[in-house]
Amino acid sequence: MSDDRNGANEANGTDERENDGQRFDRLPATADERVVAGRPTREEVVEWWAERYGVPPETWDGHTFWEKGKGKIWAFAGDLVSPNPVEGLGLRILRARQEHWKPSTNAVQRFCGEATKNVVFLDGEEADRFVRGEDQELERWDGDWGYLVAAHEFEGARESIGVGLYLHGELRSTVPKGRQEDLS
């Protein structure tokens, strides 16, 4: 099998220049290397995390980025041949290919410890409501609207607890139902 990252598979004569939701395809490094229309690049993903949340670009050193499905972006701390038909690979970090990209809860908890932008700090009661999946009025936020990193202080250290959607003075919890919990 040819490993031209996103191109034709010479071994079986198929053209892999379109998105196949059943396999992982490595993101191209830059737009100049893109062969699948609409597929984000590694450069765009790293830049988005830096611009939106202030996550340092070096956070992603040592990780390869992959797409499976339409816009589901995964980070893998390693390298493999692309395309790859495995069922799971690394950690899903982002949903792209839509107007507003959405970070995953896992990515925020794992990679946003050093985030400096669009981080809303929640007090004890607010954090408890957030992780239970409850939406809440939060008029004090004066930053950007859209997807925010929700953070709370645990034992003197800031922890990213999830992704919230802030619109019209309301913080909507996007904590998945299976991950909701009671902090009290």
Rank of each mutant, 00 (worst) to 15 (best):
M1R: 04
M1V: 07
D4N: 15
R5E: 15
N6C: 04
A8I: 06
N9A: 15
N12T: 02
G13K: 13
T14C: 07
D15S: 10
E16W: 10
E18C: 07
N19G: 03
N19W: 03
Q22V: 07
Q22D: 11
R23I: 08
R23V: 09
R23E: 10
F24A: 04
D25K: 11
L27Y: 14
T30R: 06
T30H: 11
A31T: 09
A31S: 12
D32Q: 05
E33G: 04
R34G: 08
R34N: 09
V36C: 07
V36N: 06
A37I: 02
A37Q: 11
A37Y: 04
G38L: 05
R39W: 04
R42V: 11
R42G: 07
E43H: 11
E43D: 13
E44G: 03
E47C: 11
W48M: 00
W49K: 00
E51S: 11
R52V: 00
Y53M: 13
P57T: 06
T59F: 08
W60N: 03
D61F: 15
T64W: 15
K68W: 13
K68D: 15
K70F: 14
K70C: 07
G71W: 00
G71K: 03
G71M: 03
K72E: 15
K72P: 00
I73G: 04
I73F: 07
I73A: 06
A75E: 12
F76W: 14
G78W: 00
D79L: 08
D79Q: 07
D79M: 06
L80A: 10
P85L: 03
L94W: 08
A96E: 06
A96K: 02
R97L: 10
W101I: 00
W101F: 02
W101K: 02
K102S: 05
P103L: 08
P103E: 08
T105C: 13
T105D: 14
T105M: 13
N106Q: 10
V108W: 14
F111I: 04
N118L: 09
V119H: 04
V119L: 03
F121H: 08
L122E: 04
E125F: 10
D128K: 14
R129F: 06
R129K: 13
F130I: 00
F130D: 02
V131M: 11
R132T: 01
R132A: 05
E134A: 12
E137V: 13
E139F: 11
E139H: 12
D144W: 03
G146V: 05
Y147I: 03
L148I: 09
V149L: 12
V149K: 10
A150F: 10
A151V: 11
H152D: 00
E153N: 06
E153M: 08
E153W: 07
E153H: 08
E155W: 14
G156F: 04
A157M: 10
E159S: 02
E159I: 00
E159L: 04
S160V: 05
S160E: 14
G164H: 02
H168W: 09
E170G: 01
E170Q: 05
L171P: 03
R172G: 01
P176G: 09
R179W: 00
R179K: 04
R179P: 01
E181A: 14
E181C: 14
D182K: 09
D182L: 12
S184K: 10
